[in-house]
Amino acid sequence: MGLITTVNDSSATPLRVPAPSGDASQDSWVTSRLDFLVNWARSSSMWPMPFGTACCAIEFMATAASRYDLARFGMERLSFSPRQADVLICAGRVPFKLAPVLRRIYQQMPQPKWVISMGACASTGGMFDNYAVVQGIDTIIPVDVYVPGCPPRPEALMYAIMMLHKKVQTERMSDKSLRREIEPDTESLLYIPPSTIDELSEPFGNSVHQTRSAP
C-alpha cells in the first residue's frame, strides 16, 4: 500500500523486529543534557498543522479558543503551512479523494515531525465503513498518538498533546534510526500483505448484519 513508516529499529536484528534502540548508558553526560534541552524546547512550542476536515475540527477550534486555550502548550500559533509545522493534527474523516492530499502535506512537513490522529474516523474509519473513507490514516502516514472519541473532547486532545510531549522528551539525537522514512519491508516477518489486511478487516458479528441493505 505504499506505507511509509518511521520506526525506531536497528535493522541489524535478524527478524527486523523494531527494538528499543541504543543504550542510554552509552551517551555522554553532555549529549544527554543537550537532548534534554532540545526536547524541552521542541515539546514546549509545537506548531500544529491542523488538517481539519469534519466534526473534530470544530472540537479542535474549541480547544484553541478561549476556554481550553492551546496557548498553554505553546501551540496557539496554528501553522496552516506544512512547511513551518511540527505536529500534524488530523482532525476528521479522510475520504479516499483526500488521501493523496494528506500524504502530500505530511511529506511537505520538515523533520522532526509528529502526527496526532484525532477522532475515531481518522484513527480507524470510525462509523464510515464504506466505499468512500480511508479506514484509518495510519494506512497513509505514520501516526504517533491516536485520540479516541467521536469527536474527542478538548480534554482528550490536550491529553494526547501531553502524551506526545512525553514521547518527544524521550528522543535522543544519537538515535540515527529515529527519523528514517522507509518503505514497508516485504521480507520482514512482521510484514502483512494488503490482501491479508483486507481479509482481517472484513465485517464480523453484528456488522455483517448491518452491511445488508434490507432485512
Binding site: 466534526c55 475520504p95 483526500l98 462509523m127 464504506n130 473513507v133 445488508r212
Partner: peptide, 27 residues
C-alpha cells in the same frame, strides 16, 4: 474531498440508526 457516502450508508441502517449520521453531516 469530504464525500463519505452518507446516503449510501443510510440505505443499510434502520430509521433510528440513521440519526447519528445526521449529527455528522452538518456538524
Amino acid at each position: 474531498y469530504l464525500h463519505c457516502g452518507f446516503e449510501k450508508i443510510g440505505e443499510y441502517r434502520q430509521y433510528n440508526q440513521i440519526i447519528p449520521w445526521t449529527d455528522r453531516e452538518d456538524y
